[in-house]
Design a protein around this nucleic acid. Sequence first.
DNA 1: GAGTGGTCTAGACCACATA
DNA 2: ATGTGGTCTAGACCACTCC
Lengths: 236, 236
Amino acid sequence: MTQTAPRPTASSWQAIRDEVRRRIHSREWAPGSVIPTEVELAASFGCARMTVNRALQDLAAAGLLDRRRKGGTRVALHPVEQARLEIPVIRAEIEATGAAYGYRLLERRLAVPLPEFQARMQVPDRTPLLNVLALHLAGDRPYVVEDRWIDPDLPGLSEAPFDETSPNEWLLEHIPYTGGEISFGAHAASVIEARALQTSVGAAVFGIRRTTRDGEHALTTVDLTYAPGHRMRTTL
Amino acid sequence: MTQTAPRPTASSWQAIRDEVRRRIHSREWAPGSVIPTEVELAASFGCARMTVNRALQDLAAAGLLDRRRKGGTRVALHPVEQARLEIPVIRAEIEATGAAYGYRLLERRLAVPLPEFQARMQVPDRTPLLNVLALHLAGDRPYVVEDRWIDPDLPGLSEAPFDETSPNEWLLEHIPYTGGEISFGAHAASVIEARALQTSVGAAVFGIRRTTRDGEHALTTVDLTYAPGHRMRTTL
DNA sequence: GAGTGGTCTAGACCACATA
DNA sequence: ATGTGGTCTAGACCACTCC
């Protein structure tokens, strides 16, 4: 091993990354084992160390490698599997299926949220929040119900009636945020959800629960409940 | 703008990346607009172009920027939201909750799969595959049912009785793969699932459906059905 | 203390897409 | 034709960590 110049193809950090990934997947470099140093790899690939470095950093960011100064680079023990989920704006998600996008505002009111939403929004007891209930349609079929609670002090909110544009879209376009949490699960459709989605109460439905923050401040939290049969897909 | 040396902090490509991300999130650079060129940014940050390049490539990989030669760098129109889901080995997932991991093999047989699984495994009609049905437990509570179909020709499979180690774990440890598909959804618990998970038939359950490949060849496909109430979480 | 990765640099050439 | 990003380089210094 470590000959002076096999140079598998033209060098480029991506080609090196792919070659290293191949050696990992093929078990040529076993999980947990130390792989050659950057200098050695650079010599064997016939390129500069920086080029190898770029490739290995990419794989480390992807969780395939574990790197330590002095300790060298190891193949990750549990090649942590990661799936990158893209979360599109609902309008785009529906239009991508080829169907026409439809939107219907069901309710918009200032109200005191249930304890569960209170906790998610980190507000004290009896603080009123803006609640918006809306339905997104694919063609004429219900696609997803959006049940959202919003900090009523967000700038520009009063000019957003949400009767034409969904909170989903308006918020993404107007309110900067820095992060948040998201979770996926299944639950039995409630009376409200069942009516909006034209299904039966208790039907198994897929739900996304999400809270968006700007720094520490919670901006909005939402429950998205999809019509029965919906699946969220991605590749490994 | 573009002064010669504000130098917000010490330079490092990560600091520059964070600063650029801040300007995007704060709408200082609006979605769709062109941001300064690498050369300009390098001058304004007082560093080499490569350093800026590294930062911008990172943001482009994350979907926040759209870069084109000659066209310059733009803030992505729909700052495509991405969530990175980590998909742990089931054993690790359960142990991370603090519970003891339990495993029970329910069935192991060679059989001809239903059309749905046939399609997922891309095999001709009436091809028998290895089917393994197993239950993973958290403490003494059912956690997830694994219903898996495996290419019976995989090397080493005959020495894997799956009575102590789950297919989930054995496959990850022994069979290299290059990719696959994964999807998430909700369905009503079947009779078999309900019995294994100690819940009622028709209960809303969360399911992961996954197919793993080596190149074009399908290695295995699995339905993971979680006990009611399970949620999969991540951060934005 | 020494070996490894982490990062920066200044310059260079190339590839591509736009004008 | 030209401007922009994409990449490589050779060398350098630093920072961490293992021995």
